[in-house]
């Protein structure tokens, strides 16, 4: 028996969330007294593996060939084979576009219960009960999984990264990899920009910013603190910013360490999208804006004055 974590790479590098996933998997493996395994699909640079050992994997299984295009069918098939070979009882994915697209398929094939948006360690191993976010972070559900194998996808920023060095032996796994039928006809990718979904810091603007022409100051702030930019729904609806930046219940749900809500009143749907952030800063001229109910820090005042000043201080230091 084992706990298996799927560790996702992007352009040959492991995603930031990998350390959190491994730390989390390690804790479950420990409670179940079974080894923690990780599986990586596709080509990843050798030096990427060494740091992972710190977070507790007993073995890291690697399938190097193929996987150039994300074909959920092929990825899921490979992971199913790995689960069977390694007798994994708990399979952990990251709660993101890739993890979710594969995890559901894996669970269906294994006739396993799948719980997404997992918000913490199992409350009990036998029976297996796990805490999950529902109603877009408004409440948690305690979910009992009755199947033999359990598939989980872990929400970001749910679990502390814990150093727990282990052998982390790299093992090439021989699997019968399906040929992908996915025909990718174009890729269009911006590099160098911090990704909203992966960002540790996010600067976000709302209707209070009054227009797309005022986004310069938010971008300067984002740049000064290495943050991604986001926005509230009215902003993307108005076309001031692209839909890909919309944060909220019907847009992106994020969990950065630091979230700046500037000129965002804090509609319940927006709060749903940000409430897992570690630290929320609100800047709004309306003292009654609901965003202040969820913010850790706030300034009631004119964002057009406060933001440039804050940016300047940040750049100076």
């Amino acid at each position: 028996m084992s706990v298996l974590v799927y560790i996702e790479n992007w352009d040959g590098k492991f995603k930031k969330v990998t350390n959190e996933l491994l730390s989390y998997g390690k804790q479950i493996a420990h409670e179940m007294s079974v080894p923690l395994y990780a599986i990586s699909l596709g080509n990843v640079a050798d030096q990427e593996f060494a740091p992972l050992k710190n977070y507790g994997p007993d073995k890291i299984f690697v399938v190097n060939q193929g996987f150039e295009v994300l074909d959920n069918q092929v990825y899921a098939d490979a992971i199913v084979q790995a689960v069977e070979k390694l007798d994994a009882q708990v399979v952990v994915f990251s709660q993101d576009n890739v993890g979710n697209a594969i995890a559901g398929r894996v669970a269906a094939r294994l006739k396993a219960g799948f719980v997404s948006a997992v918000a913490g360690l199992p409350l009990s191993i036998s029976p297996f009960i796990i805490k999950k976010k529902i109603y877009t972070n408004k409440v948690f559900g305690h979910v009992k999984i009755n199947s033999a194998i359990k598939v989980l996808s872990l929400s970001k920023n749910t679990f502390e990264v814990i150093e727990n060095p282990a052998a982390g032996e790299i093992v090439n796994l021989e699997l019968a990899i399906k040929t992908s039928s996915t025909n990718r006809i174009s890729v269009d990718k911006v590099t160098g920009k911090i990704l909203l979904s992966d960002a540790e810091r996010v600067v976000s603007g709302g209707r209070g910013m009054k227009g797309s022409e005022n986004w310069g100051m938010l971008e300067s702030l984002a740049q000064a603190m290495h943050a991604a930019t986001g926005c509230s729904r009215p902003v993307s609806d108005e076309g001031w910013r692209p839909h890909t930046e919309h944060i909220g219940q019907t847009g992106k749900i994020i969990a950065p360490n630091l979230y700046f809500a500037i000129g965002i009143s804090g509609a319940i749907q927006h709060i749903g999208g940000i409430s897992s952030s570690k630290c929320i800063v609100a800047i709004n001229k309306d003292p009654d804006a609901p965003i202040f109910e969820v913010a850790d820090y706030g300034i009631i005042g004119d964002a057009f004055k406060i933001v440039p000043e804050f940016t300047k201080l940040l750049q100076q230091s």
């Binding site: 559901g104 948006a117 109603y135 019907t250």
Partner: peptide
């Protein structure tokens, strides 16, 4: 928007 299961599509395809 209720259970936030994100899984029905992938499972159905499988």
């Amino acid at each position: 928007a209720d259970y936030n299961g994100v899984a029905v599509g992938a499972m159905l395809a499988e």
